[in-house]
Design a protein around this nucleic acid. Sequence first.
DNA 1: ATGAAAGCGCTAACAA
DNA 2: TTGTTAGCGCTTTCAT
Lengths: 374, 374
Amino acid sequence: MAKSAPPCRATGLPLKPKPPKNRSAGTTASKRGVTIRDIARLAEVSIKTVSRVMNGEPNVREDTRARVAAVMRDTHYRPNPSARNLARVRTHNIALLYDNPSASYIVKLQQGALEICREEGFNLLIRPCQYRNPSLVQEITALVLEGRIGGLILSPPLTDSPKLRATLEAMDLDFVQISPLPSLQRSPHVAFDDHRAAYDVTSYLIRLGHERIALIKGHPDHGCTESRLAGYVAALQAHRVTVDPSLIAQGSFSFESGLQCGRLLLSASPRPSAIFACNDDMAAGVLHIAHSLGIAVPGELSVVGYDDTPLAQQVWPSLTTVRQPIQDMARAAATCLIGKIRSRSHDTGNQAIADVTVDYTLIIRDSTGPARQT
Amino acid sequence: MAKSAPPCRATGLPLKPKPPKNRSAGTTASKRGVTIRDIARLAEVSIKTVSRVMNGEPNVREDTRARVAAVMRDTHYRPNPSARNLARVRTHNIALLYDNPSASYIVKLQQGALEICREEGFNLLIRPCQYRNPSLVQEITALVLEGRIGGLILSPPLTDSPKLRATLEAMDLDFVQISPLPSLQRSPHVAFDDHRAAYDVTSYLIRLGHERIALIKGHPDHGCTESRLAGYVAALQAHRVTVDPSLIAQGSFSFESGLQCGRLLLSASPRPSAIFACNDDMAAGVLHIAHSLGIAVPGELSVVGYDDTPLAQQVWPSLTTVRQPIQDMARAAATCLIGKIRSRSHDTGNQAIADVTVDYTLIIRDSTGPARQT
DNA sequence: ATGAAAGCGCTAACAA
DNA sequence: TTGTTAGCGCTTTCAT
């Protein structure tokens, strides 16, 4: 409870040359926690040396380092993040930006990033956004200027906004993108080869004997929509199957849009024997419609989704789908971003900061089967 | 670029009495953003007055306040959160703790809390936990001691750990709980009346003519599991329907457990004509099994879920279910918590800090229908 | 109603 | 290799 003596002020001169700073009295701190000064005192070094040990900086004798580390461990010392952020040029906060309707996608993204942040001592700010929001760029700018953010992880479709990317680059802010296999860009990215995945899905359906294979495209804001379409078309052409535009529907990644596109496609005559929906929600919509129309899956209609969300297993029949290792991608993105930030602070400026491309898996379940012979 | 002259040290006395602080040179700050000092200079007041305005403290003349506010607006001033947290006794960080398998639940929780935090200028830390983890309490303690957290939002089932609650109370830390209608507890909570909801669901099924109504319970760690069971039993008794223990299965909120319990219940003879699963995932499992057994829903079997996740609409047929306003609950919890924290700092200590109980909605969809006459 | 000065706990730029 | 000293931008305490 005892507070320090009232500070003196007066004519402008300090009255008492040194009002003895009486914090961290005696034992280890009581309420507010252990501070760097406590560690310094206990380890009999200066606070700067403690700081060096904390940050893994060079120029500390091994035994000194060990001693300090031991004290830190014993006292359960935890550096105060606010103090570090305040003192540092670049904070150790990174933000994860997303605009995605899929809760499971978001949560996986968060988990991956969170794991790395925890390991590396960074804070993660989550930030739902709206791609279409005209003030998006401004909001992000504000966020950064607020001094809270040392780097950004961009997830689709935000990665597809050239304006946003340009702004971030202009601000000299580190960021990494989680994106479809990219055209050449300056910031690092974790990429996923949507083209190849869509190609493989389509080829798989062709191998099952399907020829009338419909596609429900994703939301036009998303770059992956183009890639998947291209993969689909490429596969058809490679196998000399005619590309029929009436078999291509424009979805928006929502269950509702799957319902609508499904209804549309299944009312055609002859109707498609397989439908490849660009995510699981839309595929579930197709399944829903097929049930209500009494169309047997996979007997009369094969359905494929994309993402391998929990939903894919939960609908009936379970969906054949493409699994993206979203959590790994987020992990890679976070690692990469933190590496970039660190390398700015000369830290241990070694981190390999390279682009990453991850692999997918085609998960085959009950919703696909051989084409019925005509 | 110009940095201040090298600091002097020496015999212990400052050589230069006052090396002129040359920050915020001339115009508004360039890179690191506008600081409180810029505002003070521009508004021709002291930084303390600016601080008063920022924090809505009293004792500022209206015109002064207006002038300062105007400058803040014009300069797009954003106070640095790290600096505030460092200087403050209690930080403006709050953490949202959860251990929940449902992504959509998590995301709704986050959104609600995030909205309020943004409005109120708080930061939200998200924190996935594991209820069963023996070091849970220790982890949370560390989080708090790290000096990062001014308060906590606890969501189920973490609310059901007396040890955790006790620890938090002992630490004198503000927290609010999102929980089933609670036994009397000391910390405030946002409650949901699971008992009544389960009662109403069961009554609804009875009204449809069902008599053999099975229940798939939730995870035993969750307090709501008990409440829902009690509501179910109460409704049966109120309507003079026999409570048959063989119709009560122990699930765990997972789709898998729904599958298993569903298989079990549907293999009984005579089998139940309705199954009330304590969440949508398990209900989806029941649907899945029913399909594969060729049991028509709702013709031969009615199914009810709980939570109204997106899944409830996406399966076929769509699930009758109970909607909890999770996002509102999170909003209420955050508001309440922030009120508590504020009231400590004498701020504008008025906030009504009351418990809240929210209402649910029974959403009737295609998965339920009248009992088939025997 | 307003302001001056002392920190909050840490990093950064030097000096030794 | 280690230590000293200024701040980072804000809140707080006390004086006016």
